[in-house]
Computed example of a mutant assay.
Amino acid sequence: MDWDDLRIFLAVARAESLSGAGRRLAMDASTVGRRIARLEASVGAALFLKTPGGYQLTAEGSRLMAPAEAAERAATAAAEAVSGDAGLSGQLRIGAPDGCANYLLPQVARDLCAAHPGLEIQIVALPRVVNLTRREADMAIAVSPPDTGRLMVQRLVDYHLHLAGHDDYLSRHPPLDRLEDLHGHRMISYIPDMIFDRELDYLSATGVEAAQISSNSVAVQMQAVRAGAGLGIVHDFAIPFAPGVRRVLTGRIALKRSFWLIRHADDRASRRLTLLAEAVAQGIRTEVARLEGQLSAAPDGRT
């Protein structure tokens, strides 16, 4: 049994499909299937059970996971030892909530790729927590620290959110002096049953029970605010990307949240991923400070 066979086995186990594994491996799904069949023939046991939900590990396949992941770590360590200090290269996949993915990670990726031309960065923006156990990403950004799994968790940075509206909308609607005034305004927020983390329940801070316009994406919410569709609680670091949008009731509604960097515990020995994690962490801190710094302190209702 060689490492290439185990590499394909791990990809199928994590993607739970031949096509998903093929995309990750840059390999045709039919080729992945043939390689798995060959591996099963060589070990004399079925490693996967094909179900309507995808490829599920059999008992024999589950037993193979630990040694296969150990071989993966050894192969990674060997590659890093050969590359030495030649620079960071290869693929890095980062999973993140779409606020971070839209407004912070593009600049971080730009700077990292400029510093390391051999690096390829993939940004996975998902309206849920990225599953590192299934290797959906090499590392993930989250708005809450996980309490389960074999994971390394690092607090990155605090960030701030405020109620905001576009000048066009604000000029056409009654002034905002008190929280009670919000009841005469159209609100924009998350779809309630699609809030995947309690830290994303922003609307409760306003005292308004329901939003007239909602989305599972904070980027879509910001675009609705920018279009003059209503008021929404938005990231301060996103406001510089939306000309005409300004904060309101800043002395009455001000939220603080944190970003957390999460890695799989098995990656602790990877010098490459450790260096990349440090660079991503510093990049996010720098961008939050830069963008929030563009919002000057001003009287309540203005930025």
Results as ranks from 00 to 15, higher is better:
residue 2 D to M: 08
residue 6 L to S: 09
residue 9 F to N: 05
residue 17 S to N: 12
residue 19 S to R: 15
residue 20 G to W: 09
residue 22 G to I: 04
residue 22 G to W: 03
residue 23 R to A: 12
residue 25 L to P: 04
residue 26 A to P: 08
residue 27 M to E: 06
residue 27 M to F: 06
residue 29 A to F: 15
residue 33 G to L: 04
residue 36 I to R: 02
residue 39 L to I: 10
residue 40 E to R: 00
residue 41 A to W: 01
residue 46 A to N: 09
residue 49 L to T: 05
residue 50 K to N: 10
residue 54 G to T: 07
residue 59 A to W: 07
residue 60 E to L: 04
residue 60 E to F: 05
residue 61 G to F: 11
residue 62 S to K: 06
residue 67 P to K: 01
residue 67 P to C: 03
residue 69 E to H: 00
residue 75 A to K: 05
residue 77 A to Q: 11
residue 78 A to P: 08
residue 80 E to K: 01
residue 83 S to C: 00
residue 84 G to S: 06
residue 87 G to D: 06
residue 88 L to C: 04
residue 92 L to E: 08
residue 93 R to H: 00
residue 93 R to E: 00
residue 97 P to W: 01
residue 99 G to P: 00
residue 100 C to F: 02
residue 103 Y to K: 02
residue 105 L to S: 01
residue 107 Q to W: 04
residue 108 V to T: 01
residue 109 A to D: 02
residue 112 L to N: 05
residue 117 P to Q: 02
residue 119 L to K: 02
residue 120 E to H: 13
residue 123 I to H: 09
residue 124 V to P: 00
residue 125 A to E: 03
residue 134 R to C: 07
residue 136 E to Y: 02
residue 136 E to T: 03
residue 141 I to M: 15
residue 145 P to M: 01
residue 147 D to P: 02
residue 152 M to T: 10
residue 152 M to V: 13
residue 153 V to F: 06
residue 153 V to L: 07
residue 157 V to I: 12
residue 159 Y to W: 15
residue 159 Y to M: 07
residue 159 Y to R: 06
residue 160 H to V: 02
residue 166 H to C: 09
residue 168 D to C: 14
residue 170 L to Y: 04
residue 170 L to W: 03
residue 170 L to N: 01
residue 173 H to E: 05
residue 177 D to R: 09
residue 179 L to P: 14
residue 184 G to V: 06
residue 184 G to E: 10
residue 187 M to N: 08
residue 187 M to L: 12
residue 188 I to T: 09
residue 190 Y to D: 11
residue 198 R to Q: 13
residue 198 R to E: 12
residue 202 Y to F: 13
residue 204 S to Y: 05
residue 205 A to W: 12
residue 206 T to V: 12
residue 207 G to S: 11
residue 208 V to D: 12
residue 208 V to P: 14
residue 209 E to H: 04
residue 209 E to R: 11
residue 210 A to Q: 15
residue 215 S to F: 08
residue 222 M to C: 10
residue 223 Q to N: 13
residue 229 A to E: 14
residue 229 A to W: 11
residue 230 G to A: 06
residue 233 I to L: 07
residue 237 F to E: 08
residue 238 A to C: 07
residue 242 A to F: 15
residue 242 A to N: 03
residue 243 P to A: 00
residue 245 V to R: 06
residue 249 L to G: 03
residue 253 I to N: 10
residue 255 L to D: 09
residue 256 K to V: 15
residue 256 K to Y: 08
residue 265 A to L: 14
residue 265 A to S: 11
residue 265 A to R: 13
residue 266 D to L: 01
residue 277 A to M: 04
residue 282 Q to K: 11
residue 285 R to E: 15
residue 288 V to C: 04
residue 289 A to Y: 10
residue 290 R to N: 10
residue 292 E to P: 08
residue 295 L to W: 02
residue 295 L to T: 07
residue 296 S to T: 13
residue 296 S to W: 09
residue 298 A to S: 14
residue 299 P to R: 10
residue 303 T to H: 11
